[in-house]
């Protein structure tokens, strides 16, 4: 029996079960929406407590980050994420989990090369490409602003 790689790859497709997308999407919508709503609740609470809006804008995501770090440490975040998929990945909780989980996991390799270096193994690219995009936009904005366009 002769079987080239291309034929085999097509053959395999019929065997691989698809992800249960409608169910995943509903879970992502409900959990993701709830996390945003929780953030909104903190946002309004902090404003209600009389904090300046500029501070509240920072404190709100920080609250979600702290909660995520605690949930990650107790080993419950990954259980929620297994159900929620993109629902926990896309909000700032996904970023916080991406920093906290390798930090805990690589403790045995030391505080410098373990915790310090591995902290950014997943989240690093987010910071790198977000910053790069902002530099490009900053340069464009400089010229547009100079000509009074924005």
């Amino acid at each position: 029996m002769n079987l080239d790689a291309k034929t085999y790859q097509n053959y395999v497709k019929a065997y691989a079960k698809k992800s249960p997308s409608p169910k995943n999407c509903i879970a992502a919508f409900l959990v993701g929406g709830s996390i945003c709503l929780l953030a909104e609740g903190f946002y309004r609470l902090y404003l209600h407590l009389g904090l300046a809006e500029a501070s509240v804008r920072i404190l709100t995501p920080v609250t979600i980050i702290v909660l995520t770090a605690i949930a990650t440490g107790f080993g419950v975040f990954d259980c929620l994420a297994k159900f929620a998929g993109a629902g926990t990945l896309v909000p700032i909780s996904g970023f916080a989990n991406a920093v906290t989980s390798p930090a805990i996991d690589n403790k045995a390799e030391g505080l410098v090369m373990g915790v310090g270096a591995k902290m950014f193994i997943i989240a690093g690219p987010v910071i790198v490409y977000g910053t790069l995009a902002s530099v490009i936009w900053g340069v464009i904005y400089y010229f547009l602003h100079g000509r009074g366009i924005v």
């Binding site: 698809k18 990650t72 990954d78 994420a81 297994k82 989980s101 390798p102 805990i104 996991d105 997943i122």
Partner: peptide, 17 residues
């Protein structure tokens, strides 16, 4: 998991395969 995939506490979904 640590060597081949992601940290143990990282939240992700596995594909059915």
């Amino acid at each position: 998991e640590r060597q081949f995939r992601t940290p143990i506490e990282y939240g992700g979904q596995r594909t059915p395969t």
